[in-house]
């Protein structure tokens, strides 16, 4: 199972805080086991940096099992490193070769300012969700769960969209730093459920409006987002959101 240990060179973006200009620094990562995850490799490098009296590379991670969406780094120009359907925390070092130089950068987007090193501020995503990413129900004032049947196909498709972990890789990968895949996933999920119908138009309009205000770019249908999405959320959902939006502007225009 375990292969030979590797020696790697890392070029890592270091930035003290949001105001700092930042720079690349080079570190050696000796004796890396192919069984390590990418983040465990960084843990090991960090222990070394601390031992040498430096400050460790700050990076976000939490669940380390690919579901919380916290980890966020661009590895060799690709968000999460480029293994299909995989977050950085689940990417393992066996995909690299002895002697490789790996460039590690934070998500780059105006709407995701850097907090420190590889950690970015993704609260813009929060505000988009707060604008309309919900169904307005009050706790307790709801019908029996089986009172509203949902066709299995709709429910399954909604689940495909709802799987989004909100990591922001779609924004990081898009040449325009567009958040369309993220927003589309939420809009699609809720518009596919019968429970989401009453607020369908209002939701689409509000979320798109907020997305624009946060300073994300626009979709030019390159498909990069879909290719790096760790949950493999389909570009179809962007088309679906466009449809939802068209419906919403027509309806709101006629009112």
């Amino acid at each position: 199972m375990s292969g030979e240990a590797m020696n790697l060179t890392l070029r890592v973006w270091r930035q003290d805080d949001a105001e700092d200009a930042g720079r690349f620094e080079t570190y050696n990562a000796p004796d890396i086991s192919p069984d390590m995850s990418f983040l465990e490799m960084l843990d090991v490098v960090n222990e070394g940096i601390i031992a040498d009296g430096g400050e460790p590379i700050a990076f976000d991670s939490d669940c380390r099992e690919g579901i919380c969406g916290t980890c966020s780094m661009v590895i060799n120009g690709v968000a999460h490193g480029g293994q299909q359907g995989t977050t950085a925390c689940q990417l393992h070092m066996r995909h690299f070769r002895d002697g490789d130089t790996i460039t590690i950068e934070p998500w780059r987007a105006t709407a995701f300012p850097v907090h420190r090193d590889l950690i970015v501020d993704r609260t813009s995503f929060e505000r988009i969700q707060q604008a309309g990413g919900f169904i307005s129900v009050r706790t307790g004032s709801v019908p029996d769960a089986n009172a509203t049947p949902v066709p299995k196909e709709d429910s399954d498709l909604a689940m495909d969209a709802a799987q989004c972990i909100g990591c922001g890789a779609c924004v990081a990968a898009c040449k325009n730093a567009s958040a369309m895949l993220f927003v589309a996933a939420k809009v699609s999920h809720l518009s596919l459920m019968p429970q989401g119908q009453p607020e369908r138009e209002r939701r689409a309009l509000a979320m798109v409006q907020q997305m624009d205000e946060e300073g994300f770019g626009n979709c030019t249908v390159t498909g990069s987002c879909e290719a790096v999405c760790p949950k493999e959320i389909s570009l179809d959902f962007i088309a679906r959101m466009n449809r939802e939006y068209g419906r919403a502007i027509l309806k709101s225009g006629c009112n």
């Binding site: 590895i75 690709v78 293994q83 590690i104 780059r108 987007a109 325009n176």
Partner: peptide
């Protein structure tokens, strides 16, 4: 929306 470009050349694992 993207003022800083990536330095790393695109090279997925």
């Amino acid at each position: 929306a993207r003022q800083v470009r990536y330095e790393g050349a695109v090279q997925p694992v």
